[in-house]
């Protein structure tokens, strides 16, 4: 049982490694956010689940930590993507479509007084 948990933790750290490589390789802010959010969430969840197999007595706290990460991580990446769009950080040249700019709703939001 302990060996299985340790292997799950090892797998989680490989997913975190993929996240960091993707962070260096991706061409613009939005793609980096995609890789950063997904891979770090699963990597941390796998590490903590593996530790819960290794030490069953810690399960309650580890589940608390997992729920916490699952709730907060997408929220922070959503906030960062929104800010990056509204301070006009450019897209990569490979971007094919931008519906938010074409939509009249977006223009109305930008002209709203703070």
């Amino acid at each position: 049982m302990e060996i299985i948990g340790a292997i799950i933790t090892l797998f989680g750290s490989f997913v975190l490694l993929v996240a960091s490589i993707g962070l260096v390789r991706m061409p613009d802010v939005y793609n980096r956010l995609q890789v950063g959010t997904k891979a770090t969430t699963l990597g941390t969840i796998l590490s903590l689940v593996g530790l819960a197999f290794v030490v069953p007595g810690w399960t309650a706290k580890l589940i608390l930590l997992i729920i916490f990460i699952m709730m907060t991580n997408p929220v922070s990446s959503h906030v960062l993507a929104r800010v990056a769009y509204f301070i006009k950080i450019p897209f990569t040249s490979r971007t094919v479509t931008d519906k938010l700019k074409l939509s009249d709703k977006a223009l109305r939001i930008e002209h709203e007084p703070k």
């Binding site: 993929v18 490589i21 993707g22 390789r25 991706m26 061409p27 613009d28 939005y30 793609n31 890789v35 897209f91 990569t92 490979r94 971007t95 094919v96 479509t97 931008d98 519906k99 938010l100 700019k101 939509s103």
Partner: peptide
């Protein structure tokens, strides 16, 4: 996507 050498992405914003 990250590990393939040609970086196969085709990004955009949809509604």
């Amino acid at each position: 996507r990250v590990l393939s050498p040609s970086l196969p992405i085709n990004p955009g914003i949809v509604e």
